[in-house]
Amino acid sequence: MKVQVLFFASLREALGTAGETLEVGEGCDVAAARALLAARRGEWQRLASPRIRAAVNQALVAEAHGLAEGDELAFFPPVTGG
């Protein structure tokens, strides 16, 4: 199945992309999708950090949240304010 993956803020800059369509297996959850992307090595390994948050269809979710065909999975670093 396919999910749309988006990257925000410093992740977008480090990875050199705002997003992509990712093919994942049935029953895939956020943790598995994150591991699939982080396995690309280099800057992609930033996604393995527990500080990087994930949202599915614009709602914050846990790592065990299951993905469905057409979901939007977004990753973003912690933000600071001031």
Rank of each mutant, 00 (worst) to 15 (best):
M1I: 08
K2S: 11
K2W: 01
Q4N: 11
V5N: 05
F8T: 10
L11F: 11
R12T: 08
A14F: 04
A14L: 09
G16W: 10
G19R: 04
G19M: 04
E20M: 10
L22Y: 06
L22R: 06
E23M: 00
E23G: 03
E23Y: 00
E26P: 13
C28N: 01
D29N: 15
V30Q: 03
V30R: 02
A33K: 04
L37F: 05
A38M: 07
A38T: 07
A39D: 14
A39Q: 14
A39N: 12
R40T: 07
G42P: 06
G42M: 06
G42T: 06
W44S: 10
Q45P: 00
R46A: 15
L47N: 05
L47F: 04
L47V: 06
A48E: 11
S49H: 08
S49R: 13
S49W: 01
S49G: 03
P50I: 04
R51Y: 11
I52T: 12
I52Q: 09
R53L: 15
R53G: 06
A54K: 05
A54N: 07
A55P: 06
A55I: 02
V56A: 02
V61K: 11
A62F: 01
A62E: 15
G66R: 15
L67S: 02
G70W: 04
E72V: 14
E72G: 02
A74W: 08
F75S: 07
F75R: 07
F75M: 06
P77K: 10
V79R: 09
G81A: 13
G81F: 09
G82H: 07
